[in-house]
Design a protein around this nucleic acid. Structure first.
Lengths: 338, 338
DNA sequence: CACCATTATGACACCGGTGTCATTGCCAAA
DNA sequence: TTTGGCAATGACACCGGTGTCATAATGGTG
C-alpha cells in the first residue's frame, strides 16, 4: 500500500461503497451492525485515520481552538512568564477534555494577528492571553467582533461585552492584600506595578488595595509607588529606585509575583529584612512563589479554573449559547514574606 | 456578505477567474503585476484568508507540527514539570520562526496516541516530549517507523535511529556534578533519582556521576541511593527515607531540580545545613532553581537550543534531508547549594 | 397479492482551494 | 503571410471526506 489509506480503500476491501464506510466509522445508525464491524476491523488493520482536512473542509469546522499568547514586548525572550505557562497547561488540559485540539502561537501585540486563525478555518475560536497594554488591543477587538470571530480573552475587557472576558477579581485581590497588611499593623504601604490604566489588571489590583486602605483611613503616598511590568528585572529596578530615593515603607504590594521576587532581591541587597522591616505580598501564586526566600505571601489566581472557564466560555460562544461574565475569586496565601 | 469570502468572491469582484486569484495570492510569476495588485486589494478589503483545510487537503501537507507531552502518570495533575513548560515555550518559538503552527496535546504514555496526528493529516510531524518509563514507548516507536511517520523525541532512544533523538549529554552532565563535588572535597555522595534503566535519562546521569567518581577512586554506596520520579514530592520523600534510615552523606546529586528542591525541604526539616553539612546539585536549571534557598547548583540543559534542534531535525526529516544525532552539551551552574 | 414503511446501501454533488492543460492574444522571425 | 514562442488567463479535474437524495431489499398488513 503506497501512501495512507483512504475511505475508498476500506470500501474496496469491505465490498461496500465509500459512503457506507464514512457512515460506519461515524457510528451512524443507518448502517448495519455487521457491516459496521467489518469496516471497523479493516480500518484498524489499514491504520486508517479520517483525514481532518477533508473532514473539516466539508463540515466547516475544525475541532480546534487557537491560543494566542501575547508577550510583554520588553520581556526577556528566553523566559516566558510562569503564570502564562501555567495557564497554557490548564487550557491544554481543558481542551483535551472537551475533545478539542489546541494550536499555540506566540504573538506580539502589535502584529496583524486578528482573525488569522479563525478566518483560515484553522480554529473554531481563539483564546487571547497576555498582560500588557490593552489599548493596542481595542481596535483589533472591534475587527474581531465585526467579523463575528469567536474569541475570549483573559483579563482585558472588550467594550460592552463582559461575556468575552474571563478574569480574576483583581479588585478584591487588591483588597485582600490591604486587609492582610492592616491586620498585621503594616500601614506604611508601597506599591509596585502599573497604577495607570494601560494595564487594566494591575490597575484594578491597585484600586482595590488603595480603596481598602482608605476604608481604614490609610492613604498611600504617591511617592511610594513605582512602575514595573511583570518581570523580575523590572521589579528589581523599580524597588532599587525606591530605595535609592530613600523612600521608607514597611509593607510592599507587588502587582505580580515576578515583580515581588525582583523586589525581594533588591531589598535583600540593601540589607532590608523581610518580613521584619518590610512585609511583601505578590499576586498570581506562581510555582516559584513558595520556594523563594522567604516564601512569598501572594494572592492566588487559580489557573486550573481559569483555563477551564476560558475554554468552556469559548465553546459556548461557538455553539451560540449564552455566556455570563466570569469573575474568579482570588485567595490570599499567607507565607513567610509578611 | 454572508459567511466568509472565498477565492470565487474575489474572482468575481476582480473580473478574473478563480484560478488567477489563487495564483495571484501565491505570488505566481504567471500573473500580471497589475492583476495581482487588484486581487490583493480586494482580498484585503474582504478580509479574505486562504482556507487552510482546502489548501492542506489539496497539497497534502499542513504546515503544522504536533507536540505530544507525556506526563509522569504519578505526578500532580495540576502542575506541569517546569522543565517541559520551558521546552514547550522554546518549541513554540522555533515553530513560529519556521512558519509552522504547533498543535499541543497532553498524552498519557499508555494511550493510543501513535500516529493519530500525522495520519489524520493534522500535522506533518510529531515531537515527543516526556520523562518517564520509555519501555512503554518502544513498541509504539516501531509502529511509527513502520508507518513512516515523521517524528523526533526528546531523551528516549529509538532503536538504531539516533537521528530521531535530541538529547542532553546526560552522561557528561553526571560527570560534571561529580567533578564539582570532588573539587570541593565532598566525596561521601548520595544519589536520588532512578538508577535503573527504566528512565534512560536519569540512568545516564547516574552512570556519568558514578564513573567520574570511580575515576577518582571513589565508590558510591548503594545504600546511599534512593529512587524518585521527577517531582518535588518524590524528592522530598526519598530524602526523608534516607534520613530516617540514618544514612550519612555530605554531597547529594539529584537527577532533576524538582527532586533537588524536595531534597532541600527534607534536609532543612531535619536541620541539616546546606551547603555546610550537605552540598546539593540538581539537573535541568529550571527557573525556580535560582530562587530557592539556598540557590541550587545545577547542571543546565539549554531548553532554547533543545527546542530549536527538535524542530529543526523534525523539519529535516519531513523534507527528507539527512539528520545527524544531536547531543547537547550540559553546563554546570554553580550556586549556593554546593 | 398489492402496498407501504423500514432498513441498508449506493450515487453524486459539494466544501475551497491547487495544479495541469488548453486557449487566447500578441509580437518577432522566417 | 505563416509560424513559433511567450505571457496571461481560463477551464477543469482533483484532494478525501460529508450530507442528501435515490434505490433496492425486506417484512408486515389488509
Amino acid at each position: 500500500m503506497k501512501g495512507k489509506a483512504t475511505s475508498f480503500d476500506i470500501a474496496h476491501y469491505a465490498g461496500v461503497s465509500q459512503s457506507t464506510v464514512s457512515r460506519a466509522l461515524r457510528n451512524s445508525h443507518l448502517v448495519n451492525e455487521e457491516t459496521r464491524k467489518r469496516v471497523y476491523d479493516i480500518a484498524k488493520k489499514l491504520n486508517y485515520k479520517v483525514d481532518k482536512n477533508a473532514s473539516n473542509l466539508r463540515t466547516q469546522q475544525s475541532s480546534t481552538l487557537a491560543l494566542l499568547l501575547f508577550e510583554d514586548p520588553t520581556s526577556d525572550e528566553s523566559q516566558i512568564n510562569p503564570f502564562f505557562l501555567a495557564m497554557l497547561g490548564s487550557i491544554t488540559r481543558a481542551c483535551a477534555q472537551e475533545g478539542y485540539d489546541l494550536l499555540v502561537s506566540f504573538q506580539s501585540a502589535s502584529a496583524d494577528w486578528q482573525a488569522d486563525y479563525e478566518d483560515s478555518h484553522r480554529a473554531d475560536g481563539i483564546i487571547l492571553l497576555g498582560y500588557g497594554d490593552y489599548i493596542d488591543f481595542q481596535p483589533k477587538f472591534k475587527t474581531l467582533l465585526e467579523q463575528n470571530t469567536k474569541f475570549v480573552c483573559w483579563g482585558a475587557t472588550v467594550d460592552n461585552r463582559p461575556d468575552l472576558t474571563v478574569c480574576c477579581d483583581n479588585y478584591t485581590g487588591g483588597k485582600l492584600a490591604a486587609t492582610h497588611f492592616i491586620a498585621h499593623n503594616r500601614t506604611d504601604c508601597a506599591f509596585i506595578g502599573d497604577a495607570s490604566d494601560h494595564s487594566p489588571e494591575f490597575f484594578s489590583r491597585f484600586q482595590g488595595f488603595k480603596d481598602e486602605l482608605l476604608t481604614n483611613k490609610i492613604k498611600i503616598n504617591e511617592r511610594k509607588m513605582a512602575n514595573a511590568i511583570s518581570t523580575e528585572e523590572s521589579g528589581y529596578h523599580a524597588t532599587r529606585s525606591l530605595i535609592a530615593n530613600n523612600i521608607k515603607f514597611n509593607a510592599l504590594f507587588a502587582a505580580s509575583d515576578l515583580i515581588a521576587i525582583g523586589a525581594i532581591r533588591a531589598l535583600k541587597e540593601a540589607n532590608i529584612d523581610i518580613p521584619k522591616d518590610v512585609a511583601i505580598i505578590g499576586f498570581d501564586n506562581i510555582a516559584i512563589a513558595s520556594y523563594v526566600n522567604p516564601p512569598l505571601t501572594t494572592v492566588e489566581q487559580n489557573t486550573t479554573i481559569a483555563g477551564q472557564m476560558l475554554v468552556e466560555n469559548l465553546l459556548k460562544l461557538i455553539r451560540g449559547e449564552e455566556v455570563k461574565s466570569t469573575l474568579l475569586p482570588p485567595i490570599l496565601i499567607p507565607r513567610g514574606s509578611s
